[in-house]
Structures are given as structure tokens and as C-alpha cells.
Design a protein around this nucleic acid. Structure first.
Length: 501
RNA sequence: GGCGCGUUGGUGUAGUUGGUUAACACGCCGCCCUCUCAAGGCGGAGAUCACGAGUUCGAGCCUCGUACGCGCUACCA
């Protein structure tokens, strides 16, 4: 039997990293097993679902490299009739029943509290009897009659009072639950008979032939209910694999509302992350290849090493700080991105650098033509100390534009350090202009000779030059910078920097 | 409240028939390199493997209990 998995996001906002990780694991599993990866948009919540969310989720997945769905995308809202039919069938077969209890109002805000309070109240009394519904054993004819008369009803699954349901989770192992703990869950809402989540997923998963359900651990304890639906429907129960949750630094569940942008996948794209790097990082949240504990993995390695056995059971903390901009997201994610930036094949990085330059208005046609070699050399040089793609237009701006700001701290450190620089810099500029040919060696020779003549340390001029030419206090080896920036531009920048001394 | 799941340095993880000083990565500190900062190399701090019992010659690995965390419990998804 070929493996068929699906990723089933609900389009009620952007794709957050937890969901992205779920998608990634599903996809890796499918690719590893030579199976099919499907996508189903769970847009049954009409109020909250938007097309824009769907687009943004698809976009996020594509950014991660996941756009090769093996079949057409399924939109759950279009299958509502099927879900209703399934419920109707269960009623006919006596496996579900109509509940004519008037629909109670529920305050959406404090549901959890309400549940706890209700439970407490019940346990003080006779205990919880999930089978106490007066309509559970209504004769079929009467049920039909009342329904035909237009009396509103909900449809509930008739869970057998005896016994227990269990399944072997591929990650968490054997999971057993007694039926006394499972209520007769509602399948269809009263009134409009719209299907509820548990019914919809099961019917859709059956319809799509899903063999392995890989999803967040927050679904773990609902799985028994869903298995009951599978069984009532006479369908084969898939393999379930639940994934540990990704938590915020305070160990709370990662939420869009509380944690905002850091948890949105598109943030990483927008802030200059490399898809392969972030994918690599994400894969390590809750999974490891074991053995050597290898971390840097290419897509091919990820595909071949991934296994459900390597998924572990405890929740992972996604570490970030909203007070420290240097740790705006997980440090390891940042490190990994930097690692990719400086070690990935240059020809793969170049298009990304180009994209950054273009969006900052710094791209020039000659970079793609006669200056292509220069661009390659420059990118190779500066990428060594970059962390994200944004650095190409941030701290790397001076390599591509004459309009750049001098970092005040760098000015203080390297230019205001010695008043003599006010005179030295223009003189150095003059010397620079006379160098022929212009390359790393000749630039170095010229500067060192000049320093010796003037009786100053070369370091003074080197550091001053760095700030003059790049606006920064830090950067690549200065003579490489001289070469890449060019003789005339170097001279001009040395002259204009004198005013800051 | 009930039920479930989890707990290895600050974080991500390895540790798969129980067997000497608990491994790797990020982060942190120091040294080397050096024109700066990274990278790289070397070294270091940091874990009584949540806690308490038990089984055993021997437990991070097995059993039980406790604590803490998280999740589910809804005519939300």
C-alpha cells in the first residue's frame, strides 16, 4: 500500500512555524516512503477563513520548497454534503442519533473554564454519565417524525458505553481510552446541520485515502473519537503519528496572538532567511536523525534520513527574546542561516543576493553582464560575515551604492580616533589614485608604504579606511575591500571621510 | 475537575539487550590567528540525567509514587 499523507491547515491566518513543521514532516515522510503528499484546506469556519490566508499558507509552503502536491488541493468546505451524508448514514444504521436538545449558548472566550466548572459540578453529583442523553434511545420512527416536523436537532455519534478504544501512535506508542471518558460527540450542528471538525476530518481522510495522519500532539486525545467514527463508518483506520508541540520561551503554546511575527513563516522569508536553512532548522525541532546527531543536512539527506521513529515526545522550545533585537528569533536558527549564507554554493546564493539588491533598488544591469565576475567576487567576500540576506543591503550597502551611511560608532572608533587622519586621508587618497595596476597586493603595498613614510601605524589607516569605504567598523580584510570597491571610489570615499575626523 | 502526554547543561538534541570520567550543536567565557569583526583552530564554565523510593552487583535507561509543565476535555478547528 502506498503511503498517502496530507497537510490540513485551516486558513485563518498566516502559516505559523508549528504548522510549517507539520507540513514539512508530512512531506518528508511522503518523499522518504515514495508516497503521496496531499493538501487539504480546512476552510469550514466560514467566518474566520479567508482566501488571503490560503494564499499566504501556500506561499509559505512554496518558500520552504513544498509545492509539489501530488493531487489537486482539496477544500473542505466543498465536501460538507458528503459529511452530512455520512452522518445521515450513521443515523440510518443506528450508529448515531438525533439529539433534539435545544442548542445551548456558549461564551467563546472562557470555554476551558466552563468545561472545568461543569466537570467539577458533575463530579460532586453522581459523576459524569456521557450516555445520559434522553434522545439517545428514541425510537427511529419518532426521531424521523420529529425531524420531518421541522424540529431542530443535532446528530451525535452513539458511542458504545462499554469498552475502550486504543491505537498505536507511531510516536507516542499505545494509547488507550475508556469509553466512559468519551461522550457522544456531536457530528452535525443542530439547525443547519453543518458538520463538525471531527466528522469532517475523518470523512475527508477516508475519501482521500490517507494512510498516515501526521499532525500536532494537540490532536492526540481527540484521536480516539475519530477512530470511533472510522469504525462506525466501516473504514480502515490510518496510522497516527503525533508530533511534539513547539513552545514559546515561557513554555506556553506558540500563538499568533501572543507571539506575533516571530511565529509567522513569512517573517523569516521577509527577514532574509534562506529557505533551505530554515527548513533545516525546522526539521530539527522535535526530530533528529539519531546516531551521530547530525545537524546540517541537505534536502536529500533530510529526505533519506527522516523517520517517524526519530521524532521524539517532549515539546521543543523555540527560543527568542522580544527585548533583545539580536535574539529576535532562535539563536540556532540565526546561526544556521549564517552557516548557509557563507557555505552554500555561490551560484545558488547569487540569485538571492540579486533579489535583495533589486528590492532595495541597488541592482544594476551590468552585474548580470560585464560586472558579473566582480559581483561574484564581492558576494563571496562579504558573505563570510553575514547572517541573513538582508545584510547585503544593510551592512553591505556600500559595496553596491555610493549612498550609504557611516555608522556613528565606527566613525567614533576609527575616524575621530586621531586628528591627524584629517590630513592623512586625503593624502592617502592621492596616493591611491596613482596606483597602477589596482589590486589587493598593490593596494596593500601603497598603504603600507604611505604609513611608513608618514610614521603612523598601518592599522590606523586600515581601520580608518574601512569606515571610510564601507561605513562599518567591521568587515573583510581591508585590501580585498579596496580592490572590490575600486580605485576611484576608494579615493573619493577617503577624501569625503576626512570631514568626519 | 477528569483524562492523556512529557521531564538529559540556558536552548535544540544523542545516549535503541541497564555496565568505567553523560556525547554533539547553538549560546556563553578565554586563547591563537589578525588591519577590525566574523569564520576557523584550541581550551573552558555549565547536567548530582525533575524529585523520592524500589528492582539490580550496577539505572539517564526498568517499576512505583510525587512535583512541575503541556495538551485535550466545545453544537471551535
Amino acid at each position: 500500500m502506498t503511503v498517502r499523507v496530507r497537510f490540513a491547515p485551516s486558513p485563518t491566518g498566516y502559516l505559523h512555524i508549528g504548522a510549517a513543521r507539520t507540513a514539512l514532516f508530512n512531506w518528508l515522510y511522503a518523499r522518504k516512503e515514495g508516497g503521496k503528499f496531499l493538501l487539504r484546506v480546512e476552510d469550514t469556519d466560514l467566518q474566520r477563513s479567508t482566501d488571503e490566508s490560503t494564499r499566504s499558507i501556500l506561499e509559505g509552503l512554496a518558500w520552504l520548497g513544498i509545492s509539489d502536491y501530488d493531487e489537486e488541493i482539496v477544500f473542505q468546505s466543498q465536501s460538507a454534503d458528503k459529511h452530512r451524508e455520512a452522518a445521515a448514514r450513521l443515523v440510518r444504521e443506528g450508529k448515531a442519533y438525533r439529539d433534539f436538545t435545544p442548542k445551548g449558548e456558549r461564551a467563546d472566550s472562557n470555554v476551558k473554564q466552563e468545561i472545568a466548572e461543569r466537570a467539577r459540578a458533575q463530579s460532586e453529583g453522581s459523576g459524569t454519565d456521557h450516555r445520559a442523553n434522553p434522545y439517545r434511545d428514541l425510537p427511529p420512527e419518532e426521531s424521523e417524525r420529529r425531524a420531518a416536523a421541522g424540529e431542530p436537532y443535532a446528530v451525535r455519534l452513539k458511542v458504545s458505553p462499554e469498552g475502550r478504544t486504543s491505537f498505536a501512535d507511531a510516536v507516542y506508542g499505545e494509547q488507550t481510552r475508556d469509553h466512559s471518558e468519551i461522550e457522544d460527540l456531536v457530528l452535525l450542528r443542530s439547525g443547519d446541520l453543518s458538520p463538525l471538525y471531527n466528522l469532517s476530518v475523518v470523512v475527508d481522510d477516508i475519501e482521500m485515502g490517507i494512510t498516515h495522519v501526521i499532525r500536532g500532539q494537540d490532536h492526540l486525545t481527540n484521536t480516539h473519537k475519530q477512530i470511533l467514527i472510522y469504525e462506525a463508518l466501516g473504514a480502515r483506520v490510518p496510522v497516527f503519528a503525533h508530533l511534539p508541540l513547539i513552545l514559546a520561551p515561557n513554555k506556553a503554546k506558540l500563538s499568533k496572538r501572543k507571539h506575533g511575527e516571530v511565529v509567522s513563516l513569512t517573517t523569516y522569508r521577509d527577514r532574509g532567511f534562506i529557505p533551505a536553512a530554515f527548513r533545516n532548522y525546522l526539521a530539527l525541532l522535535g526530530w533528529s536523525p539519531g546516531e551521530e546527531n547530525k545537524e546540517l543536512m541537505s534536502l536529500e539527506e533530510l529526505k533519506s534520513l527522516f523517520s517517524l521513529e526519530g521524532v521524539h515526545r517532549s515539546n521543543a522550545v523555540f527560543n527568542f527574546s522580544d527585548s533583545d533585537p539580536r535574539q529576535w528569533t532562535d539563536q540556532k536558527a540565526l546561526w544556521m542561516n549564517a552557516e548557509y549564507v557563507r557555505t552554500m554554493p555561490l551560484e545558488e546564493l547569487l540569485p538571492m543576493a540579486r533579489g535583495e539588491l533589486e528590492s532595495a533598488g541597488l541592482w544594476r544591469p551590468e552585474y548580470g553582464a560585464e560586472r558579473a565576475d566582480w559581483l561574484g567576487r564581492t558576494v563571496e567576500l562579504i558573505r563570510q560575515r553575514f547572517i541573513t540576506l538582508k545584510d547585503f543591503t544593510g551592512q553591505g550597502r556600500a559595496y553596491f551604492s555610493d549612498e550609504f551611511e557611516l555608522d556613528p560608532a565606527a566613525v567614533a572608533k576609527n575616524l575621530k580616533k586621531d586628528a591627524a587622519l584629517g590630513e592623512l586621508l586625503p593624502a592617502l587618497a592621492e596616493r591611491v589614485e596613482a596606483v597602477e595596476p589596482w589590486n589587493v597586493e598593490t593596494a596593500e603595498h601603497a598603504l603600507r608604504a604611505f604609513a611608513e613614510e608618514r610614521g603612523v601605524k598601518a592599522g590606523l589607516l586600515i581601520n580608518a579606511s574601512r569606515t571610510a569605504l564601507t561605513g562599518q567598523a567591521v568587515g573583510p580584510s581591508m585590501f580585498d575591500v579596496f580592490e572590490v570597491v575600486g580605485r576611484e571610489r576608494s579615493a573619493a570615499r577617503l577624501r569625503s571621510a576626512a570631514q568626519f575626523v
